[in-house]
Every structure is written in structure tokens, then in C-alpha cells.
Design a protein around this nucleic acid. Structure first.
Lengths: 179, 179
DNA sequence: ATCTACCTACCTATCAGTAGATAGGGAATC
DNA sequence: GATTCCCTATCTACTGATAGGTAGGTAGAT
């Protein structure tokens, strides 16, 4: 079997629940129940809910960026394709919303540490994509807006595809300039 | 004073709370407290939470589409501008997320009636915008994807602008083609 | 006399969080 | 080699707050 350790299982379950229904949709009780331990035992690993929320946002960001590699690792167009593919995988392989897209929508209601990690996800993604667009020849300011436009479109495309229950729409949108 | 009636106040408060933190962030208790009545009295107007959730999604959709007018009311480019302005107003005038963007992110965790209203918001918006793009000369299929791309970008731009606390980013993104 | 819009008073379920006990393992001490 | 001690990971048992929801009553207007 080689079950992952308890901390990993807590993070996995909390992340999955949060990516379905947001910050208020995961609970210590449900997580514990799924693992087969008691809710109080989850508190041994994560002092409180905002610590767990921040932990899943942090892990999500690290994994996401690690999967992307360095922004200058290949030709800019290939890196952009890779960026789109990362969202595509989150949507289709996981069958879930982007965690930070979800938290981003809820940002004004999140505990400060969770909001900060969410913001950091977008800042680091903006930086990464800006570097790609700069490598493609854009001026820094324009690169940043272009980065924002792509991130926005991909987050929105996830929402739209899931709401309309039409996953193929994600691919069609992510290949289309918006305005 | 001319306070709006209780039903309207309930809807207003529930909508505002939902647009901040999602479906799980508004409660009969909080709504009642803000109006100055008891939680049980809110149940007189809305039998249960999913009825209230569906009601705010429905009212939001109707108001949104009413503000847009008919898709062929003016030149296509002007209608697109008007569409962008509707999101801009939701973000900047209200200072809130789009209700259905929020519900769309949470769609897999919503009670069926609320999910249906959310889906309906996007379907009707897709129809409306598709008509604009058709009027602009696009073939129906392409118009639909173009519509999806713009809706996605605007929903995502709201998330991004709020997460990065940079409202000007919304305007820059909504004027920029994404991929 | 009925309807509207509220009320009090309650229910059961769930929430995050805490205190204190315990079983087992490993390491240091005798 | 046995004993002591501590650490880890869990447990039981609880708290106070909050959730959605219900039953039944009531004052005032039509």
C-alpha cells in the first residue's frame, strides 16, 4: 500500500475539498473522518484552520511552479503552452477548480495568512509568465499585462467549463484571444 | 428613509455576503441580525437556504442582463464595451466579486437549484455575447467561443484584481488579448 | 376572520478548538 | 539488560459558538 503519511493525507483531502467548495467547505471533522482518525488529531498536525488553509495554498503554489520549470527553459511559445497545460491538467486530470482561483474569488473573506498565500500564488505566476513574455520580446509593462490576461482567461475558463459542464470549452477558450 | 422591503433587504445582504465569501458565507442569522429581525423570520420569506441562494442568483442574472439591453441595440463594438463595463461596475462600484463567478467556482458543491441558476447565468451570457459577435460577422461557432473567452477573461480579471489588490489591472486586462 | 410579518423558544447537527490521557517507540541512563 | 524518560501520534471528552430549520404564538392590517 505505502499510504502517504498523515500530514500529506490531511493536505490532500483539505485541498480537494477546498477546490470543490472553497475555504468554508473543508472541516477538521470531515478530513479526519476520511482518514480514519479523530478531528482532534488533525489539530496535532495543524494548529488551526487558517494554518491548514495557508499550508494547502502554499503547497499548491510550490507544486504548480515546480511543474512549470524555469520560464526561460524553452522557447517562449512552448513555455506558454506548458502554462496552459498546467491549468488544463488541474481542471481535467484532477477534475477540480484551481485552488488559488477559488481562494482568489473568496479573498476578502479569508483569514489573513490564507489571503497572503493566495496573493503570493498570483504574484509568482505573474512574475513567471511576465518573464516568458519578456523573453518573447515584450516590454516589461506590456508583458505583465499580457501575463495577467492569460492567467485571468485560464481561471475564468475553468469556472466556465465547470459551470457549463463542457470541458472542451476550456481548450477552445484557451486558444482564443478575448476582446 | 424609504427602506426597501424586507425581502429586498434579505436579498441585498445575502448577495453581498455571497459575493464576498461564497455560498457558505451567508447565514440566516447574520442576515437577520443586520436587518434587525430574527433568523426565523427570514425563513418566512425564503423557506430554506437553497431557495435564498437560487433567488439571489436569479435576481443577479436578471439585473445583469437587463443592464446590458438587447445585444443588437447598438454597434457590436459598443455592445462589447458595454459588456465589459458591466463587469467593471460589479467590481469597482460594488467592490465585490461577480456573484455567479463566485458560485461558478463552487459549482460542484452547490445545491442543485443554486447550481442550475448559476449555469443559467453563464448560458444566457454566452447567448447574449454570441449574438453580438455574430452581428460583428463571426460564424456562430466562433462567436460562441469568442463569447466564452471574453466572459472567462472578465471573471478571471475580477479574481486577479481583487487578489492582487490592484483594481487598475482589471482595465488593463480587459483591453488585452490573452494568448 | 383571515392574512402578513414577525416573534419566542426550541431542535439537532456541526463547527473550530482545548485539555488531558494513553500507547508505543527510541534513546539515554543505571 | 532493564529502567527511566521523552517524543510522537493518537485518543476521549468536552466547550462555546454557530448552522439551518421548525412549531406555535401574536399584533396589526385588510
Amino acid at each position: 500500500m505505502a499510504q502517504p503519511d498523515t500530514v500529506t493525507r490531511i493536505l490532500d483531502i483539505a485541498e480537494r475539498m477546498a477546490r470543490q467548495g472553497g475555504y468554508n467547505s473543508f472541516s477538521f471533522r470531515d478530513i479526519a473522518g476520511e482518514i480514519g482518525i479523530k478531528a482532534a488529531s488533525v489539530h496535532y498536525h495543524f494548529a488551526n484552520k487558517e494554518a491548514l488553509g495557508a499550508a494547502i495554498a502554499d503547497r499548491y503554489t510550490e507544486n504548480f511552479l515546480a511543474a512549470l520549470g524555469e520560464p526561460v527553459e524553452a522557447a517562449p511559445d512552448e513555455m506558454i503552452q506548458r502554462y496552459v497545460a498546467a491549468y488544463r491538467s488541474a481542471l481535467l486530470d484532477d477534475g477540480l477548480m484551481c485552488l488559488c482561483g477559488m481562494f482568489g474569488a473568496e479573498i476578502s473573506d479569508l483569514p489573513a495568512p490564507v489571503a497572503a498565500k493566495t496573493r503570493s500564488f498570483f504574484e509568482r505566476n505573474m512574475d513567471w509568465l511576465s518573464n516568458v513574455y519578456v523573453a518573447k520580446g515584450l516590454e516589461a509593462g506590456n508583458a505583465r499585462v499580457k501575463a495577467g490576461a492569460l492567467i485571468a482567461q485560464l481561471e475564468g475558463a475553468m469556472i466556465l467549463a465547470r459551470s457549463l459542464d463542457d470541458m472542451a470549452l476550456f481548450d477552445r477558450i484557451s486558444a482564443t484571444p478575448a476582446p
